[in-house]
Amino acid sequence: MGIDERDKFRKWLAPALFLSMLAALYAAFVYAPTEATQGDVQRIFYFHVPSAWVAFLAFFVVFLGSILYLWKKDRRWDILASSSAEIGVLFTTMVLLTGPLWGKPIWGTYWSWDPRLTTTLILWLIYVAYFMLRAYAGERVKGARMAAVLGIIGFVDVPLIYLSVLWWRSLHPLPVVVRPGGPALPPSMLGSLMVSLLAFTLLYLYLLRERVLLERLNDEVEALKQKRR
């Protein structure tokens, strides 16, 4: 498993990410109009929603990687799943931090037991357990197998958790983008959100790529250590 420094994917990804981040910052802070009732605090929306999107995307990749790992027993899929889980936990943490920042001035409270908040928090706990499982498993292969099982169960559980908390109570603002009858956002806000979504997705791909390469280097170092003994 050699690391190709002239990786084509890596070559275009970094500049594309840089440009899209600049565009997203411009869109969120300059281009997008100030929301009439909520004011500037609403701009956190352009970071909160894309973070949530990346978190769910990342956990979906964990789910796929876990299935492929149990099926093919190839270390590559385990690296993909665990790297993606790390990024997923990071972005879930960002969702859980940016949400209350907006909630305090708008709802008047940092936290509410709304379905999406609660589901996100439980999701965060499941993937924290995912890393504890890996850390305490002893052998790496054993930890990888058990974590893969949790990666599958955790993802399958998400709709059930969401539905159960939804039936329990609800306060979160209704979806404004994906809903019957088309988006309820003005085009300038929707455009800004789309640019931000693109930037965050590229950021996810970039981080995932780097994390996977780092883990492969780790494996190589381990292999070299074994050889020297």
Binding site: L150, I153, I161, S164
Partner: peptide
Amino acid sequence: ILLFPVAVP
């Protein structure tokens, strides 16, 4: 730690 988050529903 593993069981309770998953058993929430």
